[in-house]
Design a protein around this nucleic acid. Structure first.
Lengths: 204, 204
DNA sequence: ATTTCGACCGAATTTGGTTTTTGGTCGAAT
DNA sequence: ATTCGACCAAAAACCAAATTCGGTCGAAAT
C-alpha cells in the first residue's frame, strides 16, 4: 500500500518518457508504435493513454526534456567561464556539439516516415525549435546586458539587443549547418571562436 | 543549307534548356518527363539524347544557368554601390531576395517526387550549392581585399580572409533561413543591414 | 478513486501482383 | 550531323485485400 502511494503519477510519466526516448533514438519515431512503448515500459497500450493524451504528446515531451538538457548544459559550461568572449565561445561550442548529436538523432528519427508523417513531424520540430530559440535568447540577452554593464560592449537599446541576439543565434545556426554539411570539426574549432571575436568587436 | 549551318548545336542546346527550365518551374522536376520537354521543344524524345547525356544533365545545366543569373545580378547591384558597407548590404539584399524566390521554386520542383528521387535530387542540389558557394566566396574575397587596400578594414591574412568570408556567408544563410521560417520581410530589412554593420566593425 | 487492460473501431498503411509510364538505347532514315 | 520510331528494362502508379496502429471505452483490479 505504502509502496503504491509512493509511485506517483509523475514517476510513471517520466518512466514512460525515458523508455520512449530510448526507443525513438534506437528505431526512429516512425518505427516505434505505442504498443512497443507500452511493452518496453511494462504495461498495456491502453495504459499509456492514462498518462498521455496522444503519441504526439509523448514525442513532444521527449523533445522538451532533450531541450532542457541542452539548455542546462549550456548554462553550466558558460558559468564556468568568465568574460563575455569566453562565455560566447562556450555557448557556441555547446551549441555546435549538441547540433551534431541531435542531427544523427533526428536523422534516425525521420527514418521510416512517409511524406505525410514527415510534414506533421516537421511542424512539431518547428514548434520545438521556437521554444528552444526563446530559451537561448534569454540566456544571451542576460549575457549582453551584463556585458554592457561591465562596459565590455556599448550599451544596447532593447531593439538593438534583440537584433544582436538574433544575429548571433542565426549566424551560429547557419555556420553549424554549413560546417556539418561541407566542413570538418576542426574547421568549427577555428570558425566559431573567430566569429565570437568578430561579434564582440562589432558590439564595442 | 546556309541556314542549317547557322543553327549551331549550342543554339539548340540553349533552346532545350530554356524550354526545360520553363517546364520545371511550372510543374516541378518530378512532374516533367523527357517526352514533355521534347514536345515543348518541338522535337522527338530521342533527339534530346543527341544534345544531352541524361535528364540529370539537363536539370544540372538548368540549375547552373540559374546560379549564373543570380551571381550576375549580385555583381550588378554591388557595382552600383560604393564603399564596403554599402556593397555588403547590396550582397545581403540580393541573396535574401533570391533565397525567397528560389525557395518557392524548389518547393514547386520537389512536388511530385518520391523519397528516392528526392534524395538523389538533394545530392544534386548539394553539388550546386557548393559551386554557388565558390562563386560567392570569390566575390566577397575580392571585396574584402579591396577594402583592406582602402584601409576600410584591417589587413587580413589569407586564412583570416577565408574565415571572414565563410562567416559572412554562412551567417547570412542562417539568418535568411531563420527569417523565412519564423520572421517577416521587414525584419530582414533591419537585421541584414545591422549584421553588415556589425561585420564591418568587427573587421576594423 | 486511481490505475490497468482487453476488446474494439476507423483510418491509415502495407502487401502483392498487374499495368503504365518513363528514362534511355539503337539502328534506320534524312 | 541530326532526327525519330520502335523497343527495352526498370521504376512508378494502381488497386483491392489484408494488416497495423493510434486512439476509445467500459469493465475489472487495486
Amino acid at each position: 500500500m505504502f509502496y503504491y502511494l509512493c509511485t506517483m503519477a509523475s514517476d510513471k510519466r517520466t518512466h514512460i518518457l525515458s523508455t520512449a526516448q530510448k526507443l525513438f533514438q534506437e528505431k526512429g519515431l516512425g518505427m516505434v508504435t505505442m504498443e512497443d512503448v507500452a511493452r518496453a515500459a511494462g504495461m498495456g497500450k491502453s495504459s499509456l493513454y492514462y498518462y498521455f493524451k496522444s503519441k504526439e504528446e509523448i514525442f513532444d515531451a521527449v523533445l522538451e526534456t532533450e531541450i532542457s538538457e541542452i539548455i542546462l548544459e549550456t548554462m553550466k559550461r558558460m558559468s564556468s567561464r568568465s568574460g563575455l568572449l569566453e562565455k560566447l565561445m562556450a555557448f557556441a561550442a555547446v551549441k555546435f556539439e549538441m547540433a551534431r548529436k541531435r542531427k544523427s538523432l533526428y536523422r534516425a528519427m525521420e527514418a521510416g516516415m512517409d511524406a505525410v508523417a514527415l510534414s506533421r513531424y516537421n511542424e512539431l520540430k518547428k514548434g520545438v525549435h521556437l521554444r528552444y530559440l526563446e530559451k537561448e535568447k534569454v540566456i544571451l540577452q542576460q549575457l549582453l546586458i551584463q556585458a554592457a554593464g561591465d562596459r565590455s560592449i556599448k550599451t544596447l537599446h532593447p531593439k538593438e539587443l534583440d537584433q544582436a541576439v538574433m544575429m548571433f543565434l542565426s549566424a551560429l545556426r547557419g555556420m553549424n549547418r554549413e560546417i556539418t554539411l561541407f566542413g570538418s570539426a576542426e574547421q568549427a574549432d577555428e570558425l566559431l571562436p573567430a566569429f565570437c571575436r568578430l561579434f564582440q568587436r562589432g558590439l564595442q
